[in-house]
């Protein structure tokens, strides 16, 4: 499980950073071509869609690293089993939310899969929308792995 999660995270970081690079380069192409008075119409769409991918991938990785900002007032105050219980509640909340987003995300992908990009009608909008279920799906996996750890803490607490 742990190895799989690490590999998943590594892959996701790579994808996120790659899209970040794509949109930077695309914007540079846009500036250059505009000032050379060459009409390139796809830059804005490619840049924005890559940006969407990189944000969603980054956000998922940040779930694994527990970097999304939260108030740790209560979690810090509690100790041992109580703390583990609270963490489990948080993990389950995130999983429940992401299961719904995953589910609705898949439906949205189905609805809009065949929509076209404006500047490049041969490309499908599905390639963009699918970032949502991928994000939600990986967030579920990361939260599950946290859940497993917190349940272990809870159990070991019981043994003591």
């Amino acid at each position: 499980m742990n190895r799989f999660v690490r590999l998943l995270e590594k892959t996701q970081i790579f994808v996120g950073v790659a899209f970040l690079c794509v949109f930077i380069v695309t914007i540079l192409i846009q500036i250059t071509t505009r000032h050379l008075e060459i009409a390139v119409i796809w830059t804005e769409e490619v840049a924005t869609h890559s940006f969407i991918w990189s944000v969603f991938m980054g956000a998922a990785v940040m779930v694994n690293r527990r970097e999304h900002f939260s108030f740790d007032y209560l979690t810090k105050k509690l100790k041992g089993r109580k703390q583990a219980t609270l963490n489990i509640i948080i993990d389950i909340t995130l999983i429940a939310f992401n299961v719904l987003i995953f589910n609705y995300g898949i439906k949205v992908v189905e609805q809009f899969w065949n929509y076209n990009w404006v500047s490049m009608p041969d490309l499908k909008m599905g390639y963009v929308w699918i970032a949502i279920p991928i994000m939600a799906g990986t967030m579920i996996i990361y939260s599950l792995s946290h859940l497993v750890k917190h349940v272990q803490v809870l159990r070991s607490g019981e043994v003591q």
């Binding site: 065949n114 929509y115 076209n116 990009w117 404006v118 009608p121 909008m125």
Partner: peptide
């Protein structure tokens, strides 16, 4: 029309 074509209706 420009945005309609996005829905795949060329």
């Amino acid at each position: 029309p420009g945005f309609m074509t996005q829905t795949g209706i060329d």
